[in-house]
Design a protein around this nucleic acid. Structure first.
Lengths: 342, 342
DNA sequence: ATCTTTAACGAAATCGCTTTCGGAGTCAAC
DNA sequence: GTTGACTCCGAAAGCGATTTCGTTAAAGAT
């Protein structure tokens, strides 16, 4: 068992190496019987092709690069594991690798792209945290590196992307508040450099407009995507003469910060003021009260991202054919309730 | 710039390919002047060797495999990013890759090892979440796959490992409570299959013994490593006639669960009952009150793990020379305070 | 002046697989 | 019986490095 190469199974079957190789790669000029024969003995001998030889010969790195999403130099994304697990599940089928890359800023990331484009050590890239005006799209196109973006951008119509329908999520979230009887619905949004910040705001705005509710700019706060950001934003909302009765938060982290602000003001989240976060983080359930949120399957997202990129690399699809919208659904816990009687 | 190979820079310099190769790899039978010349033009031409060709020829995969730590099939480790960032920072220097692997159970992981040992697609592995009696150590040794364990095991004296000094951490934590004036100090530990669970319990026990405090088995609870686990364990402690005034928690997650239990019993964490967690999670600071904890640098751990494994793979060190103990230090937030007067 | 070292380099095999190209058969058609 | 189409397979040239082995020329020893 120790070790086996193409040559060894060619010798065993008394056929040429090239026939074995083509049989394994399912070429159409190999008879069905030989293919079966080859596959049998390959299984029996426990043969696994040398990936480096294959990659060298075929010119395909068979490797997807995933740049870990950075956030102000911090890399503590709780859903990284799920996402990568989803990716590898798709890659394992093809025997491809997932290579982890790290960049601590946009500049560093773009520098990395250039390196990768000459070393050709990855077949394609998955990028995250897309900006509204994201220079990476053009750069990757210029470098001719196939890629799928996790999230959209201002102009990404000709690229491959997978996104959550942020607009729909916040449209639904806002309508949920409306159906609970809320009329004063605020939004704590993220920095507008991020594409998702804008989409989420649009969803919130759209729902309010449709129902004829006021869309006061006072009910819209921009926050850093952090606990502190959420806290500060909520502080501002509480300064209003007529504070909102419910708040749509751009992320769970921000929502948790907002909850802290409420506590500091002796306001119980979900009673005087309702709020819903976004991301479906488990830690939301560890809060008192438990944070309601919008969730979606990260494993599915990861798997789909990888599948799309594989198709792109293999040329089976064009970027424009690879655009997929997932949707988030509300996870009711304890912070979304009807408004209190005034 | 487009593309350059060994051949192209050999031609440019009018020397042979093999000389160029040996110059780049710093062979001693190449003159200093040629080496400088080669390095210059390599830089000038932006040459990057084809990693697959090199890996094929040299037989070194130049790739470390990291198995994402699973936890009851869940993969939501918040420090994954930091850890991997540390690893890649060490790997980048050598031009090696970090390959992410996923296994959802111990069996699946061991199956994966066998596959990797025949495919030889990684030069070494980093394993996590070591058990007290961990079969992986023997298996990897038998398969002759170089590896470094993140965490120790019952018998790991002849393997490479990097661990946090769990015993010292909990010894310090317990002594910290003692110095604050506590006498009734409980411990919520993890399942005893994990090596760290045992070490942490030992540290707690040792501190109590040294100061002549009672080590009642009632003050020791085993919990699942989850929010619910922590909550249940604390519930048990509160049933005691004489509940503890402070609790050493095996992890932040468990500690947060314990806090919830306290709240359910109308006990304010850090007043009637103090508690300290472990892991240094950011979310601890999002709690009310903020959870005190033990922290250490995950980036350093990641980097060191990778460095150790590289040395091991290159044969520069033996496993027994690669055993490193990091230490955690207390991060005081708001849940560690002197006991209240009775 | 001859012999042995030593330093520095080139030639060529090798790593294990992919892929193009061409050749050998078989069969039907004219 | 020649032609053509089709099926199936082998030979051989890569892919882009590494590494062993041998060679040359200069330096040092006797």
């Amino acid at each position: 068992m120790s070790y086996s190469s193409l040559k060894s199974i060619a010798k065993k079957l008394q056929i040429s190496e090239s026939t074995v190789s083509r049989a394994l790669n399912d070429y159409k000029d190999i008879s069905k019987t030989t293919k079966e024969l080859v596959n049998e003995t390959v299984l029996k001998m426990g043969y696994q092709p040398n990936v480096f030889a294959r990659r060298l010969a075929s010119g395909n790195a068979e490797c997807l690069g995933f740049i870990i999403p950075w956030r102000d130099g911090q890399l503590n994304d709780p859903f990284l594991g799920e996402l990568m697990a989803g990716m590898t599940s798709a890659l394992n089928i093809k025997g491809w690798d997932l290579k982890v890359l790290v960049a601590k800023s946009l500049e560093e990331e773009m520098q990395l792209f250039k390196k990768l484009s000459v070393s050709k050590s990855v077949s394609g890239l998955i990028i995250s945290r897309t900006l509204w005006n994201d220079k990476r799209f053009k750069l990757l196109k210029d470098l001719k590196i196939p890629f799928v973006a996790h999230g959209r951008s201002k102009s990404c119509d000709d690229s491959a992307w997978l996104d959550i329908d942020n607009e729909a999520a916040f449209y639904d979230m806002t309508n949920h508040f409306i159906s609970l009887g809320h009329k004063k619905i605020a939004h704590i949004g993220g920095p507008s450099i991020y594409n998702f910040s804008i989409q989420r705001e649009v969803g919130w705005r759209k729902a309010l407009l449709e129902k004829g509710l006021s869309v006061s700019s006072k009910y819209f706060q921009v926050a850093e995507l952090s606990f502190e950001g959420g806290m500060k934003a909520m502080n501002e909302l509480l300064k209003l003469k007529s504070p909102p009765t419910s708040v749509c938060c751009v992320s769970d982290t921000v929502a948790v910060g907002a909850m802290q602000s409420l506590r500091n003001h002796n306001i119980y989240p979900g009673k005087e003021i309702s709020l819903i976060g976004y991301d479906g983080l488990a830690l939301g359930a560890w809060m008192e009260p438990q944070l309601s949120t919008m969730e979606h399957s990260l494993q599915s997202v990861g798997r789909k991202l990888a599948e799309m990129l594989i198709k792109l690399v293999e040329g089976r699809k064009k970027p424009t054919e690879l655009q997929k919208l997932f949707s988030a659904s509300i996870l009711r816990r304890s912070t979304d309730n009807p408004p209190m009687a005034e």
